[in-house]
């Protein structure tokens, strides 16, 4: 038997198994799901293992002519993770957890502050009107300024949304709604092309119905 053809049939059955979930949960879906979980869990572990343990740890800390000793810290923290396997010393596994949480919080605190807050504020500062601009550009600039400020007002936690402040918050939520509606509508097309890809595989590659 030709393995190429076997591969196509296998892929076709997997595809149909997943699609059948749209009707209801069934044996084919369960089978596809079971295979998917088993294989992908193994796959990613293998990839991470070779990549991190061999590609990064072994190469940098042991094989390299100028070994990087600090990589061992990672290994030690990793081994501490395994303490969870025992009930007695399980609490030691909290150390690597605490390390990860602290590092993530510390690292991303400044990163988000700069790339989200500061960069966005800076790029919103723009002239409302410049020589040569049409009325529409001016209008658009005003819309953006109002949208950003009112959007921020909506997120205020410590002030009641009432009076003028309430109106601004209301406008803010409207802007958010436009954002959500527009992004939803915009992505529909790319979602369709995904399905086209699968149908193209089923009708074209598998059933050979498309010339």
């Amino acid at each position: 038997m030709d393995w190429q053809i076997f591969g196509v049939w296998l892929a076709a059955f997997m595809t149909l198994g997943i699609i059948s979930f749209l009707y209801k949960d069934n044996v084919f879906y369960k089978a596809a799901e079971a295979i998917f979980i088993g294989i992908s869990a193994g796959y990613w572990f293998i990839v991470f293992f070779w990549d991190s343990m061999v590609g990064k740890f072994y190469v940098q800390a042991i094989e390299s002519p100028e070994p990087e000793h600090h990589v061992w810290v990672g290994l030690i923290l990793g081994i501490l993770m395994l303490a969870r396997l025992s009930n007695k010393v399980g609490w030691i596994a909290r150390w690597p957890l605490a390390f990860v949480v602290g590092a993530t919080a510390g690292l991303y605190m400044m990163m988000f502050f700069v790339s989200n807050a500061m960069v966005q504020v800076q790029s919103t500062i723009m002239p409302l009107w410049e020589t040569g601009d049409g009325w529409f550009t001016v209008f658009n600039n005003i819309v953006i300024i109002i949208g950003v400020t009112c959007g921020l007002v909506y997120f205020f936690f410590s002030k009641k949304h009432e009076g003028a402040f309430g109106v601004a918050a209301k406008i803010g939520i409207w802007f958010l709604m436009v954002t959500f509606g527009a992004s939803f509508g915009y992505t529909v097309m790319s979602r369709m092309s995904l399905m086209l890809g699968r149908l193209d595989f089923l009708f074209g590659t598998w059933l050979e119905m498309i010339p």
Binding site: F36, I37, S40, A41, W44
Partner: peptide, 8 residues
């Protein structure tokens, strides 16, 4: 734990 694979 299920799997690291997003769609799995």
């Amino acid at each position: 734990y299920i799997t690291d694979e997003q769609f799995g």
